[in-house]
Structure formats: structure tokens, C-alpha cells
């Protein structure tokens, strides 16, 4: 499913009556099966953009086109689980059509089998994030939005979860939009990276990564990151990292 974002601007009025510009014109499109990554400084308006793309905020200029029948899966920054429902119920409420086999597989991949009947209050943040991931994947989304799903996890766990996300994304054609601070996550998971400016956010650079995700070894990833580091912070750097390898 194609996701087309053509936001021409977003402002909001503060309590004092001043108008603040949150988003500058932003235009990009993602094809089915593509993983787009938004990278930008904190507070640049990424979350606002996600809310617009998800249809939670309709007060903006421009348009966002996604097929109306597209199923959306979302991992919020905080897990946003229902504290009064068990792990399994949380997933099933969002994805009522999920089969038992599919659910069992997801719980196995995310190592949640032992926690099916636990309440979210009994889980660590890492586990709760995995439940949020399970919920997003259980709906078999056409469009998957991940808002810093690995933030504030330790490196080892973040690494494993990142591999799990890669596995799940590879398992079906899904248009994915990932927001992250981590260049490492971006380079390992993304097909195209969008670097955003500070507020009001606009796209400074768009960097495609030519090597298929599963073929990216540690050496290739280091090379891509080195390439990106060379052009940053200069937004005008003409070279496209990674293209030479494709």
C-alpha cells in the first residue's frame, strides 16, 4: 500500500495567542514493502507529523493519502497498553481476527509466551514494548508506524528487538514508517532515510540505502554510517551514501 504524505504546513496557537509553526512543507511517499525512517532532533515535530499521518490530527494544511481500507498498526513511544486487560487481551482487542497460530508465533518470536495472562502493570518496559509490537503486528498491518520503539532500552535488548522488527517486516509486505534518534537503527532497518531539520521540520536530505536489509553486514552498515557522518551536519552534501554498493 502506498503512503503519500504532502503536508504543506502545520501551525498551532499557544495559550498566549502566538502562532507557532510546527511543520514546514513536507512531501514524501513510501511504496509497499518499503521502510522509511524519519530522523531528526527532539521536538522537531516528528510526533506531530505521525499524528497527522495517523489521522489523529486533522488541523493541518495539505493532504495525506493512504488507501481507506489500509489496516494500520502502531507502536507508540510509550506502550499505551490497557492496564486492565491481560497481555493476550490487549493484543486480541486490537486484532480480533488474529488466529491462535499467528498469535502463538508472534508471542514466540517476541518471547512473550510466559506473559500471556499478565497485566501490563506487571511487565518491565522492555516487555511492555514487545507487547505493543505484538499488537501492531497482530493486526497484519498494511501500514506500520513505529515511534521510537526502541528508546530507553539497553543496547542488547534494543538490538534483539530490532532484529525481531526486521524479521516481522520481512515476513509480509508492509509500508513502514519508523521514527528514531538512533542512526544505527535507521541504517539497519531503513530503506530510505529522511533527515529532518529542527522545528519547523522540513526534510533536509533523503538517503536511499541500496543494499537489501538482509544482506547488510556489519561492515556495510559501518560504511554507510561513515558515509552519512561525512555529509552530516552539512545538509547540502551531494553524495548519496550507500548507492555505490547497490
Amino acid at each position: 500500500m502506498r503512503l503519500e504524505v504532502g503536508i504543506t504546513g502545520k501551525t498551532f496557537k499557544s495559550a498566549a495567542g502566538e502562532t507557532h509553526e510546527v511543520l514546514a512543507p513536507i512531501r514524501f511517499a513510501l511504496q509497499s514493502g518499503e521502510v522509511g525512517v524519519l530522523i531528526g532532533p527532539s521536538g522537531c515535530g516528528k510526533s506531530t507529523m505521525l499524528r497527522i499521518i495517523l489521522g489523529l490530527d486533522r488541523d493541518y494544511q495539505g493532504h495525506v493519502a493512504r488507501p481507506p481500507e489500509a489496516r494500520v498498526g502502531m507502536v507508540f513511544q510509550e506502550p499505551r497498553l490497557l492496564p486492565w486487560r491481560s497481555v493476550e487481551q490487549n493484543v486480541r482487542l486490537a486484532a480480533p481476527d488474529v488466529s491462535d497460530a499467528k498469535l502463538a508465533e508472534l508471542f514466540r518470536i517476541l518471547e512473550l509466551e510466559a506473559h500471556r495472562s499478565h497485566f501490563p502493570g506487571e511487565l518491565s518496559l522492555g516487555l511492555a514494548r514487545r507487547v505493543a509490537l505484538a499488537r501492531a503486528f497482530a493486526v497484519e498491518p498494511d501500514i506500520l508506524v513505529l515511534d521510537e520503539p526502541l528508546a530507553s532500552l539497553d543496547d542488547a535488548l534494543a538490538g534483539r528487538l530490532r532484529d525481531e522488527i526486521a524479521t516481522l517486516v520481512a515476513s509480509r509486505p508492509v509500508t513502514t514508517l519508523l521514527v528514531t534518534h538512533s542512526l544505527d537503527d535507521a541504517v539497519r532497518l531503513g530503506d530510505r532515510l529522511f533527515f529532518l531539520s529542527p522545528r519547523p521540520a522540513r526534510i533536509l536530505a533523503e538517503v536511499p540505502i541500496g543494499i537489501p536489509r538482509e544482506a547488510r553486514g556489519d561492515a556495510a552498515i559501518a560504511a554507510i554510517k561513515a558515509g552519512l557522518a561525512r555529509r552530516a551536519p552539512d545538509e547540502q552534501g551531494g553524495e548519496r551514501a550507500g548507492r555505490d554498493v547497490s
Partner: peptide
């Protein structure tokens, strides 16, 4: 934030 979650996952109103 939970309302938003329900809306993103397109939960029917009653559910």
C-alpha cells in the same frame, strides 16, 4: 492517549 490508540487500531465504538 488510550482513545488515540483505539482510534488508530480502528476499534469499533462499542468495543
Amino acid at each position: 492517549s488510550l482513545d488515540e490508540m483505539a482510534s488508530v487500531f480502528a476499534m469499533p465504538r462499542w468495543r
